[in-house]
Amino acid sequence: MKIRIDKPACVGNARCAAVSAELFPLDDDGYIAVSEIAVPPGMEQLARRGARACPERIIVIEEDVAKS
């Protein structure tokens, strides 16, 4: 699973980091520090919740498709 973030559109609500500071790193100003995050196994649920928490709706989850 991957998280993609439209980083320039971040306005610093920091709600994603309130769900998981580990998964969603912020810069010193409280804006998202990265635009792509590989979700470690077991953190998928947190990733989805973090994406939903964004008032700007700029966090998109890409589910893994190739699963057998």
Partner: peptide, 19 residues
Amino acid sequence: ENKTHIAFNAGPHRCLGSH
């Protein structure tokens, strides 16, 4: 489930003091 409110507004003028 969805508590994603915009009490601090949306967009670049998002309330500076929200935290």
